[in-house]
């Protein structure tokens, strides 16, 4: 295992350990808690799962270091966007098109498998996370800002968890077929994004 991946694995293990302790002490991650609500919200939102996978693939295609940074930037941007959404409270209905647009663009980039500079990679990942986080934050039905923050922390944890899978596929397997699988997944996500744009424009007519 690469050193950067080993560091992340250790960090994830420590985080899980800390969460488990909190669960016993404060029931913050009990099934009915806002944190668990955030986790569930993410795992029940296909478009959010797809963008997390696409962004994870795009970052991981640039190597292990990018993959690890990408996971962190995606989760942080998601959290920041979510906080922004909580503060704003509402967005125009057409904002949903932005989510479809990010699926299309990030999916295409993942399918393309072309190398970009670190700034571009992180900017793409941050925008994707920010847009979906913003939409999550606006749509959040938590009782109060504090509960909303815990929901967003749950979503952020799930985002980091899911977007780490492409890293597992591309960095740990390290086989040519794994890269092909990642690119095909990217094309499927882009295709879904394109169709979602079609749905959004059709609904608006």
């Amino acid at each position: 295992m690469r050193p950067s991946l080993r560091r992340v694995s250790v960090a994830v293990a420590i985080a899980v350990g800390l969460l488990a302790t909190r669960a016993e002490a404060h029931t913050m991650v009990s099934p009915d808690s806002p944190f668990a609500g955030g986790l569930k919200h993410f795992l029940f939102s296909i478009e959010d799962i797809l963008i997390a996978i696409a962004a994870g693939i795009f970052a991981a295609e640039h190597g292990g270091k990018f993959a690890v940074r990408g996971v962190a930037v995606l989760a942080a941007a998601w959290l920041a966007g979510g906080l922004g959404g909580l503060a704003i409270g509402s967005l125009p209905a057409a904002a949903d098109r932005a989510a479809a647009g990010t699926l299309l663009i990030v999916g295409l980039l993942a399918a393309w498998d072309r190398r970009f500079g670190p700034g571009v990679v992180m900017a793409v990942v941050a925008v994707a996370g920010g847009v979906h986080g913003l939409l999550n934050g606006v749509g959040m039905q938590a009782p109060g800002f504090r509960a909303g923050v815990f929901q967003l922390l749950g979503i952020g944890s799930a985002v980091a968890f899911v977007s780490f899978y492409p890293t597992v596929l591309l960095e740990l397997v390290q086989k040519p077929w794994a890269r092909v699988v990642a690119r095909i997944l990217g094309s499927w996500i882009a295709a879904t994004g394109l169709l979602m744009l079609g749905w959004a424009f059709r609904s608006a007519r």
């Binding site: 095909i184 079609g198 059709r202 007519r205």
Partner: peptide
């Protein structure tokens, strides 16, 4: 081998979008 399964769904989705928009 991988170009075709990558290209096809993307263009298919474009066709799907045209269909959705009528």
């Amino acid at each position: 081998l991988w170009m075709l399964p990558v290209a096809f769904p993307l263009i298919m989705a474009l066709g799907g979008m045209l269909g959705l928009l009528g």
